[in-house]
Amino acid sequence: MRGVILIVVIITAFMQNVYSQDRTFDISGYIDVGVAWLGEREISVGDTMLSTTEGKFTFLTQRFNLLPSTEFGRFKVFANIEFSNGFSTEHETGNFQLFEAWSQYTISDALKMRGGIITTPFGVFNQIRDASPTHLGVLPPSVFDEGFEEVDFMPMYTNFLIFGTTDFGSIQLEYAAFTGNGKGVEGETSIDLNNGKDYGARFGIGFSDEVTMGVSAWKSGLEEYENNKKEEHTLYGTDFLLSIGNFEIRSELMPGFAVINGNKFFKATFFVIASHTMNETITPYILFDYLRDDAHIKLSHIQKRYSIGITYKPIWRTALKVQYVMDTYARPGVNDNSNIFMGISILF
């Protein structure tokens, strides 16, 4: 289904370009390459066991993302297509993902409407969680950890979005309201069962370009757990940005829960990153991540991650990154581990 949508988006984009000189067409994108030294660590084996692995050098996920877009009048079409780890359909290797594919109608900056496959504006970073050029570190904040991708925990995608920003003097207001299929989609057939619509919103307020605070809420459709008991659930998140000169602090809190095998588990993530940019090119930073996952055998139930790193941007589209990461765990017998990540992100 996503393949069909992708083809339609690309064909539409090219058609618009071919048939009208007045229409804008653009392809940008980014490439992400990284390596890591991972220290000795315990890994989860099955549901209850842990095993220790030796330290090792490894390549990280190699990504290539294309961002085709076209615009005609107030309409805009955009997609984010990712190929990773040497994607090949013939050899069945690598991965292909369609992160976004949407059409937008713009009335003004204060009112825009978007429909399609849309990353949900839940918190400041949710929309950009997969875009490596937007992160100072090689590893993005743990809010986006792949182990947290269950839709029970965080709304990944939505299908219809109304959003905008407006100024009142030095105060800026941001809003976004969205609705989507939620869990009411039959997995294999993609048929909308129409019984799990979800919806949510984010409201943000900024003061003098220096402080922005946001709150997000998301209500998902019927959820089955504990012997087929059904209920709706609501999640909340908060985000914060302080930007004074070249100094920035960003943080985001996302509490929630996941339903696994009929049981409900508490989950939460929080991060705070402080950075200072020097000479327009060098940005040292410190990052603290907190993860709680009551269903995770290794975390059981808390991981704290301390990072220190530096990002060098010789030109604004290219970032060279080094990040030292130390993970600590609340579970007895699980040792701390240290890792070093290096990467390069190029926006084109």
Partner: peptide, 20 residues
């Protein structure tokens, strides 16, 4: 600073809000 402004550009580019 240009560095802070351009960091904002990057975030807006990857979510389709602006052209590079």
């Amino acid at each position: 600073s240009p560095a802070i402004v351009r960091k904002g550009w990057v975030q807006k580019i990857v979510i389709g809000s602006i052209y590079p």
